[in-house]
């Protein structure tokens, strides 16, 4: 790992300052002060909002605790997307802290998955890792691991333990010689439409490295002009990686803990 460890640690330590406010519809009288929190970009909201929910519930008019959900600027936030992806998608043009409204009523069932407990987050997280390994190694690495290792990936994320997580994750990220990733686990996101993905190989048949630009050219050719210049912006972890970056390197170092590259495409 060496120098890459610093990059992986940088990705891991990204935080977003968030101001959580209780929605007006949820209070009878006094609206409580917002609650401020630094939320890890690579994590999921339900792993961080437990105390906030308890706090706000004291002020909520519905004491029958209906399911909590979050919204920014009338956009319900999908808890199963990592925080940093949601911010790059919906919040990157707003001033900090990122203001998020907490709701207890009218759960938007047509848009959001239910999250009854952290088990739902763990299940989603582990499914993503399995799917990613199916793309990279036909599932051979994740399936050869023990339950203990699977648990360590999850608890590493849950308790924000970089070394604990990466000591197992490095096996999933191994790609040397013939054993390079078969396909790159990635998803492309844009506001107002659901994500896109496709099978994309990191190396050409001749063994040349494919870049981020090649991936975008294959997935969203409509966003390139005649001179093959990308007409949009692509963002991950709050940065715009160079389009020449080899996609294999990005996959190994810039993937979220769920082992996917979640890339946001925007106009600005």
């Amino acid at each position: 790992m060496g120098e890459n460890r610093e990059i992986q640690k940088g990705v891991w330590e990204g935080r977003i300052p968030v101001a959580f406010r209780l929605s007006e519809e949820d209070t009878d009288g006094e609206r409580p002060e917002p609650v401020y929190l630094m939320v890890p970009r690579i994590s999921y909201f339900p792993l961080h909002t437990e105390k906030i929910n308890k706090h706000f519930l004291k002020y909520a008019s519905e004491k029958e605790s209906e399911e909590i959900w979050l919204e920014h600027d009338n956009q319900p936030l999908k808890w199963h997307y990592p925080v940093g992806l949601l911010f790059d998608l919906y919040g990157s043009e707003t001033s900090l802290p990122w203001t998020i409204t907490v709701h207890f009523k009218d759960f938007p069932e047509e848009e959001l998955l239910h999250c009854v407990s952290k088990d739902a987050v763990e299940s989603h997280f582990m499914s993503s890792i399995k799917e990613a390994d199916s793309l990279k190694h036909r599932g051979q690495v994740i399936n050869s691991m023990q339950k203990r290792d699977h648990k360590q990936l999850w608890t590493g994320l849950l308790h924000d333990k970089f070394d604990q997580f990466w000591s197992v994750n490095k096996k999933l990220m191994e790609s040397s010689g013939d054993e390079t990733f078969k396909y790159i686990p990635y998803r492309l996101y844009m506001v107002d439409r659901h994500y896109m993905t496709n099978l994309f190989r990191p190396l050409t048949e001749e063994g040349h490295h494919q870049s981020l630009k090649h991936l975008l050219l294959s997935a969203v050719p409509q966003f390139f002009n005649e001179d093959e210049e990308f007409q949009k912006h692509v963002r991950i972890h709050g940065t715009e990686p160079l389009l020449d970056t080899p996609i294999l390197w990005l996959s190994e170092n810039f993937s979220f803990p769920d082992n996917f590259l979640h890339l946001v495409i925007s106009d600005k």
Partner: peptide, 12 residues
């Protein structure tokens, strides 16, 4: 069996 985002419709 769990809930998931429908890959083509984007709905739960």
């Amino acid at each position: 069996i769990t809930q998931q985002e429908h890959p083509l419709l984007g709905r739960p």
